Computed example of a mutant assay.
Amino acid sequence: MDNLVTTMSVFPLLQCAAEEGIAVSDLLAGSQLTENLLCDHERRVPFHEECVVVSNYMRLTREPHPGLSASAHYHYNCFGVLGAALVSHPNMLEACRFLVRYVALTFTPFLVTTQEDENILRARYLDRLDLGKCREYYLLRDLAFVRNLCREANPEHWQQLVTRMDIAMPEPADSQRVYDFFAWPIRFDVDETLIETHKSALLQPLRLANPMTLELMVRQCDELLIKRQHNSWRSRVESLLLQGVMDINLIAEKFCCSERTLRRHLQREGSSFHEIALQLLQQRAIHYLKYSRLSVEVIANRLGYSETAAFDHAFKRWTGRTPTQYRMDAHG
Score class of each variant (00 low, 15 high):
L161S: 08
C96A: 13
R293K: 15
D2R: 12
A285I: 02
L194E: 04
L208D: 10
E192S: 06
Y57C: 03
S272G: 04
I276V: 04
R260T: 06
E50T: 06
I167W: 01
T197I: 06
D174V: 07
Q220L: 15
D222L: 13
H230W: 08
H73P: 02
S271W: 00
V10K: 01
A104Y: 14
F273N: 00
L37H: 08
S306M: 09
T113D: 14
V54D: 10
Y74K: 14
R260Y: 04
W158F: 15
D174L: 12
N301Q: 14
L86Y: 08
K199R: 10
A300P: 11
R151I: 08
V100A: 09
P323C: 07
E307W: 15
R128L: 14
E20P: 07
H157P: 06
V218C: 02
M217L: 03
Q160R: 13
D191I: 01
K290P: 03
P323H: 10
N119E: 13
D312A: 15
A18S: 13
H198A: 10
T261M: 08
D142M: 01
V103I: 15
H157K: 14
S71T: 01
C51V: 09
D130K: 15
R141K: 11
Q115Y: 15
F315R: 02
N56P: 04
R317H: 12
P170M: 03
F107V: 09
R317W: 04
S272M: 01
L280I: 05
I248H: 01
Q115I: 07
C51T: 11
R284M: 02
N301K: 09
F182W: 02
F181N: 02
C96T: 07
C51P: 03
H65C: 08
A123N: 03
W233C: 05
D312R: 15
Y137F: 15
L266A: 00
S9R: 14
R164W: 06
R260D: 01
Q32N: 11
V298F: 09
L280W: 00
Y74R: 14
E94T: 13
T108H: 01
V45H: 06
D312H: 14
L111K: 08
P170L: 07
L281I: 05
N77K: 11
Y291N: 07
R177I: 11
V298I: 12
I226F: 05
E42Q: 15
L242P: 02
P66N: 04
M212T: 14
N91F: 07
V81P: 00
A310D: 08
Q160F: 03
P323D: 03
Y125K: 09
T322Q: 05
G30I: 01
